[in-house]
Amino acid sequence: MTKIPVHLDINGTHHHLELEPRVTLLDALRDRLGLTGTKKGCDHGQCGACTVHVDGERVLACLTLAAQTEGRTITTIEGLAREGELHPVQAAFLEQDAFQCGYCTPGQIMSAVACIREGHAGSDEEIREYMAGNLCRCGAYPHIVAAVRQAALEVAS
């Protein structure tokens, strides 16, 4: 299959890749760029583990071809902390024990950052609804809600 050039701006770094058009953004991140923080749970857009930001909006990287993000700005879990300082959402997840096995966590955190930015963290009910696209089989949901609530207050202040 013929490869095509793809230019990706990921976490502030510019990458030039030669990719087959069938390569998803998720597999490009994980297999070509070594950014393995973004997880593959289902590869069908059903679990949310692969959530990243494209131009600031949450996107399922498994349902996005890498070529579709040509020239767009991508943020992954690796790009959230700045100079070793955790993002308020990351710090809240740690403090509230908002994860167990940790596998869904990068996707939960990326969703949570967007959820707050979208203005959908106004109440526990709203957080539950707007975080419902990210499955957690360990059942950390009550603590995820607590973490998003805490981080939303910190981001607002």
Partner: peptide, 21 residues
């Protein structure tokens, strides 16, 4: 105590099996 592996898990640095290459 908060999880000692928590920092790795919230930053995406925790290495699960399929993350090896």
């Amino acid at each position: 105590l908060t999880r000692r592996d928590g920092f790795l898990k919230v930053t995406g640095a925790a290495r699960y099996a399929a993350d090896n290459h």
